[in-house]
Amino acid sequence: MSSAEPATELSTRLLVDDADLARLRARLAAAAQTQTLLDVAYRTVDSPVGGLLVAATDRGLVRVAFAGEGWDTVLQSLATRISPRVLEAPARLDGVTRQLEDYFTGRRHHFDVALDWQLSAGFRLSVLNHLATDVAYGTTASYAALAGLAGSPRAVRAVGTACATNPIPIVVPCHRVVRSDGGLGSYRGGTEAKAALLALEGA
Rank of each mutant, 00 (worst) to 15 (best):
Met1Tyr: 06
Glu5Gln: 09
Pro6Met: 06
Glu9Gly: 05
Leu10Ala: 13
Leu10Glu: 10
Arg13Ser: 14
Leu14Phe: 08
Leu14Lys: 09
Val16Arg: 15
Asp17Lys: 07
Asp17Gln: 08
Asp17Ile: 07
Ala22Arg: 13
Arg23Met: 07
Arg23Ser: 06
Leu24Val: 06
Arg25Ala: 10
Arg27Asp: 09
Leu28Lys: 11
Ala31Phe: 12
Thr34Trp: 01
Thr36Arg: 14
Leu37Gly: 15
Leu38Met: 07
Leu38Gln: 10
Leu38Gly: 05
Arg43Ile: 01
Val45Phe: 03
Asp46Ser: 13
Ser47Asn: 10
Ser47Met: 11
Ser47Gly: 12
Val49Ala: 05
Val49Thr: 03
Gly50Val: 05
Gly50Met: 05
Gly51Ala: 10
Leu52Lys: 07
Leu52Phe: 09
Thr57Trp: 03
Arg59Glu: 15
Leu61Arg: 09
Leu61Asp: 10
Val64Ile: 15
Val64Pro: 05
Phe66Met: 07
Phe66His: 14
Gly68Lys: 12
Gly68Pro: 07
Gly70Lys: 08
Gly70Thr: 11
Trp71His: 14
Val74Leu: 04
Leu75Gln: 05
Leu75Pro: 06
Gln76Trp: 01
Ala79Ile: 01
Arg81Gln: 15
Pro84Arg: 14
Val86Arg: 09
Glu88Ser: 13
Ala89Ser: 14
Pro90Thr: 12
Pro90Trp: 13
Ala91Asp: 14
Arg92Ile: 04
Asp94Gln: 13
Gly95His: 14
Thr97Phe: 12
Thr97Asp: 13
Leu100His: 08
Asp102Gln: 14
Tyr103Gln: 01
Phe104Ser: 07
Phe104Asn: 09
Phe104Met: 07
Phe104Trp: 13
Arg108Thr: 10
His109Cys: 03
His109Arg: 13
Phe111Gln: 04
Phe111Asn: 04
Asp112His: 12
Val113Arg: 08
Ala114Gly: 07
Ala114Arg: 15
Leu115Met: 06
Leu115Tyr: 05
Leu115Val: 15
Leu119Lys: 06
Ser120Arg: 12
Gly122Ala: 12
Arg124Asn: 15
Arg124Trp: 09
Ser126Asn: 11
Ser126Arg: 15
Val127Asn: 09
Leu128Lys: 05
Asn129Ser: 14
Thr133Asp: 12
Asp134Gly: 09
Tyr137Pro: 03
Tyr137Gly: 01
Thr140Lys: 06
Ser142Ala: 02
Tyr143Thr: 08
Tyr143Arg: 11
Tyr143Pro: 02
Ala144Phe: 02
Leu146Met: 06
Gly148Gln: 08
Gly148Pro: 00
Leu149Met: 15
Ala150Leu: 02
Pro153Gln: 10
Pro153Asn: 10
Arg154Trp: 01
Ala155His: 11
Val156Leu: 03
Arg157Glu: 11
Thr161Ala: 13
Thr161His: 11
Ala162Glu: 01
Ala162Arg: 00
Ala162Leu: 00
Thr165Phe: 06
Ile170Lys: 06
His175Met: 01
His175Thr: 00
Arg176Ala: 02
Arg176Cys: 02
Val177Tyr: 00
Val178Lys: 02
Arg179Ala: 02
Ser180Asn: 00
Asp181Tyr: 00
Asp181Met: 00
Gly182Ala: 07
Gly182Cys: 04
Gly183Ile: 00
Gly185Pro: 02
Gly190Ile: 10
Gly190Pro: 10
Thr191His: 04
Ala195Val: 00
Leu197Arg: 13
Ala199Asn: 09
Glu201Phe: 07
Ala203Phe: 08
